[in-house]
Amino acid sequence: MNPLNPWPLEPVCDPSCAGRSTASVSPAVRGRRYAALAYTVAGAVAAGKRLSEPEVVRAKARAVLDGVGLRIVGDTGPLSVPKEESGGTGTLIVANHISWIDVITMLAVEPMTILAKQQVGGWPVIGGLARRLGTRFVHREKVRELPLMIEDMTRLLASGRSVLVFPQATTWCSVAGGGFYRASFQAAVDAGAPVRPVTIDYFQGPRRTRWAGFLGVENFTASLSRVAGAADMTVRVTAHPPIRGTDRRQLAQDARLVINGELAPMHAGPGAVAKVRTGAGAGAAAEVRAGAAVTVVRTGAAADVRTGAAADVRTDATADVRTDAAAAEPEDEPARMAVG
Rank of each mutant, 00 (worst) to 15 (best):
G229M: 01
G229T: 03
D232R: 11
D232W: 02
T234N: 02
T234I: 00
R236A: 03
V237S: 00
T238N: 10
A239S: 15
H240M: 13
H240A: 04
P241K: 13
P241E: 15
P242D: 08
G245P: 05
G245T: 04
R248N: 06
R249K: 11
R249D: 10
Q250I: 08
Q250F: 07
L251N: 03
A252H: 06
Q253E: 15
D254I: 10
G261F: 00
E262Y: 08
P265Q: 03
P265V: 02
M266G: 00
H267Q: 02
H267M: 01
A268M: 03
A268V: 02
G269K: 01
G269R: 04
P270S: 06
P270K: 01
V273K: 13
V276S: 00
R277W: 05
G279K: 13
G279V: 09
G279E: 09
A282M: 06
G283Y: 04
G283W: 07
G283P: 08
A284T: 09
A284D: 12
A284F: 07
A286P: 00
A286Q: 11
E287M: 07
E287V: 02
R289G: 12
R289K: 11
A293V: 12
V294A: 06
T295L: 07
V296W: 14
V296T: 14
R298Y: 09
R298A: 08
R298L: 08
G300R: 10
G300N: 11
D304K: 09
D304H: 13
V305Y: 01
A309N: 12
A311G: 10
A311Q: 05
R314Q: 12
D316R: 14
A317R: 15
T318Y: 05
A319N: 04
T323E: 13
D324R: 01
D324H: 06
A328L: 10
